[in-house]
Simulated scan of single mutants.
Amino acid sequence: MQGPRFTRILRDITAVLVVGIFMFPIFWWGLTSIKPISAIFNKDEVVFFDFEPTLVNYQVVLFGKSRAELAIESGSTFGVGGGSTYDSRKTILDSTLVAVGSTALTVFLGVIAAYALSRINFRGRQAYLNWILSQRFMPPIAIIVPIVFMYHYAGLRDTITGLIFIHTLINLPIAVLLMKSFFDDVPVDVDEAAMLDGATRFQIFRKVILPLVTGGVAATAVLCFVFSWTEFLLSLFLTNQIRTLPVKISTFVTSTGSEWGFISALGTSAIVPSFIFILLVQKQLVRGLTLGSLKD
């Protein structure tokens, strides 16, 4: 009994240490976001908790306050170079519209395509699946130049619609492959039984099969949302005025240095929408991720 108990304790300790290692950067990110600039750029020591917390960084990036005005109010001009603002409210709104729009469009198209690939036999189906899979192997940088020219001539550059389309394009292969695996786990006998009762193919899809894979739809939606929310390269090259969160954060690296307080505040805030989205679909997400793990 002593052996198994020691093994369990060692396993739990190891699990806690591994989780702690992965969570420490997020903890440090959040801690830095409430540090005053003097604590962030302290050259003598690494400041952990020996500082007075401040919400100045959040006031600047989330409420549009000027860092110069805040410095004057606090009586300190340390690290303040001018009256520029790092207001990110429009960025958050644009990122939300792009992420939600591309997720909805990707899931809609992906579910329909995956059901067809799972249930309908047609010539070249396997080759088409292989082609979809190959799209995940191609890095976005390989197609960025033609995409930029196409967007320029189509008038989609620097538009919310254009970003939604390109994020849908890069997320659609993974959505199709994921949803096909979920549809494959539903026995074909279910479709055949519904057909015997007089249901059409669309009725079978909408009323019978789709309710059985809601967990898979939720899991796919979460992944598509996170991929769109954190996408950087395409958003950088296809926008000038519109800035998604990753692109906006990159602009906080200025000629005078990196604004780590603002970067950490906006980065910490960017985690919240994904966290809320995952909480809302937590039950379906767990079901979707475990769908098909048990076989009779």
Rank of each mutant, 00 (worst) to 15 (best):
P53L: 00
L55K: 05
K43N: 13
V46G: 06
N57T: 04
A71P: 02
E45T: 12
E45F: 08
S76T: 04
P53N: 01
E45D: 14
S74R: 10
E52H: 10
L62T: 03
A68G: 08
E69S: 11
I72S: 14
F51Q: 05
A71H: 07
E45I: 01
G75P: 06
E73M: 13
A71F: 04
F41E: 01
N57S: 11
D44F: 05
L70M: 13
R67C: 00
V46W: 12
E73A: 15
F49R: 08
E45G: 03
G64D: 03
F63V: 05
I72P: 07
L70D: 05
D44M: 09
A68I: 03
E52I: 09
F51L: 10
L70W: 06
L55Y: 07
V61M: 07
T54A: 09
K43W: 08
G75I: 06
A68P: 00
F48A: 10
V47H: 01
G64E: 09
L62F: 12
D44E: 14
E73Y: 03
F51T: 07
N57E: 02
D44L: 02
G75E: 11
E45L: 07
D44S: 14
A71D: 12
I72F: 15
V56C: 14
F41Y: 15
L62G: 04
F51N: 04
A71T: 11
N57R: 04
F41I: 01
R67L: 14
V56R: 05
E52V: 06
S74P: 05
T54Y: 08
P53V: 07
F48D: 05
L62E: 05
E73K: 12
F41L: 10
L55M: 12
V56E: 13
Y58P: 02
D50C: 07
E45Y: 15
V61L: 03
E69M: 12
E45R: 15
V56S: 07
N42M: 00
V61N: 01
T54K: 02
N42S: 08
L62V: 04
E52K: 11
F41S: 07
K65Q: 13
